[in-house]
Simulated assay, not measured.
Amino acid sequence: MLVDVHHHAIPPVYRDALRGIDPIPGVDYPTWEPDRSLEVMDRNGITAALLSITAPGVSFAGPADAPKLARQVNEYFAELVSTHPTRFGAFAVLPLPDVAAAKDELSYAVDQLGLDGVNVLTSYGGEYLGAPEFEPLFAEIADRGIVVHVHPAAPPARDLATFGLPPSLYEFTFETTRTAVSLLFSGVLDRLPDLRLILSHAGGTLPFLAKRLTYGPTIGSYLRGKPPVDVLASLGRLHYDIAMSATPHALPALTELAGADHVLFGSDYPFMPDWHTAENVDGFAGHPGWTDEQRSRVASGNALDLFPALRARIVT
């Protein structure tokens, strides 16, 4: 059994809302249909996929319309999961940066629609997820045991997208790192130890930088006595998908940081094409650093533990 926790959808209402804007600079925004996802899943042995939209989220619609667009996307997801309960789950989109509206949609999406978790971007309005205004939302999410999938977006400062390259090629990994560092050094991860986050793309550059981040108080004495209490332990509590990352370069470092029990399979379809799904499955299946038991945990066991409603639908 293989569960894909990083599988994107582009609902018709969302596709229509995106017309006339450049969603992710330099990125070819793909077409998508549920049947096409199912074909790719079947061809690659993927039992179920947790769907999410990606950047730019819904904030581009403006404060008045973003909550309505989020509601429409989430209702579409609920209908699709109802039609294919053993194949699809879904992460709800929240109309951030409006925290009050996000809390309302969180309750509706989880309690009424029964979606499996929520998906957030790495920053909103130039603020990363460790900013104080987001903590009340994350506190409620942590109290309720809801899983959050964190997906990168284009950097708030567009001049960071240098060299004429699409930001998803390399900046997305840094955006994931930036938001994780903001959560660490703001103390959010210490104050909310039960917050269950899945970071995309093997955590960006975190496996490489994890030990370096412990040197904060050495480099700047003003950081002494401030959070995080234990950088490596905090990062080790997080969960990581391996979309675009099932490679011999990334998997050993990620496993060293988080252990195989905090790693989940992801494909990044359809923003990465179906041939890459096959490539990522092969990279996952062939990684020599896991035992058979660990590989089974990464394939589905970790995801099914995080998403008991999905487990109930697909495990008979």
Rank of each mutant, 00 (worst) to 15 (best):
F88P: 00
E171R: 10
L209A: 08
T122L: 07
H262P: 13
F60Y: 13
E127H: 15
G187Q: 09
Y222P: 01
E256N: 14
L197F: 07
P30F: 02
E133S: 13
L206D: 12
S82Q: 10
L50G: 02
A312E: 12
D16A: 13
V181P: 06
I24S: 11
A180F: 08
D111E: 14
L113N: 00
T86E: 15
I198S: 01
R295M: 12
L165K: 11
D230M: 09
I24A: 14
H6Q: 11
F88M: 06
A161Q: 15
P156V: 04
D305T: 13
H151P: 04
A180K: 09
G286P: 09
S221Q: 15
P207R: 09
L115D: 04
G20P: 07
G266I: 04
L183G: 03
F60P: 12
A92L: 08
Q72T: 10
H201W: 10
D143V: 09
T83A: 15
D35S: 11
K226G: 09
N119Q: 13
E140P: 05
R144N: 05
L254Y: 08
I314E: 01
L209S: 08
R313A: 15
F60S: 04
P156E: 12
P207A: 11
K103D: 10
V93Q: 04
E135N: 09
A285F: 00
D282C: 06
D4F: 06
Y14Q: 00
S37D: 02
A303F: 01
Y128D: 02
A109H: 06
S200V: 01
T291H: 03
Y240W: 10
V298H: 11
D116V: 00
D104G: 07
V281W: 13
I53T: 09
A48F: 04
P193I: 08
D143R: 15
P155D: 13
T255M: 04
A131G: 05
I219F: 10
R19V: 11
E256K: 15
K68H: 08
V5D: 06
S245A: 15
D116P: 00
T54N: 11
R15C: 00
V5M: 00
L94C: 13
G216N: 13
L137C: 06
T277Y: 08
E75D: 07
A55W: 06
D4I: 08
H149R: 10
P228T: 13
E171M: 10
P227K: 15
Y128M: 02
G216W: 12
A157L: 14
L306Y: 03
L106N: 05
G220P: 00
P56Q: 04
A78S: 09
N74R: 03
G125D: 10
F307W: 01
F271R: 01
V315D: 15
T122E: 02
F91A: 02
N280I: 13
A109K: 04
R297D: 10
L192E: 02
H84V: 00
V188P: 02
E140D: 08
G301M: 14
I141H: 03
D111P: 11
N44C: 07
L137V: 02
S107Q: 14
D274L: 04
L223Q: 06
A9S: 11
F208V: 09
G204S: 02
P228E: 09
T54F: 05
A303R: 13
K103T: 09
F134K: 07
V58Q: 02
F138K: 07
L232N: 11
P270M: 13
I242P: 00
D268L: 03
T54P: 14
P166K: 10
G62W: 00
F77Q: 06
G259E: 07
F172P: 11
V181M: 15
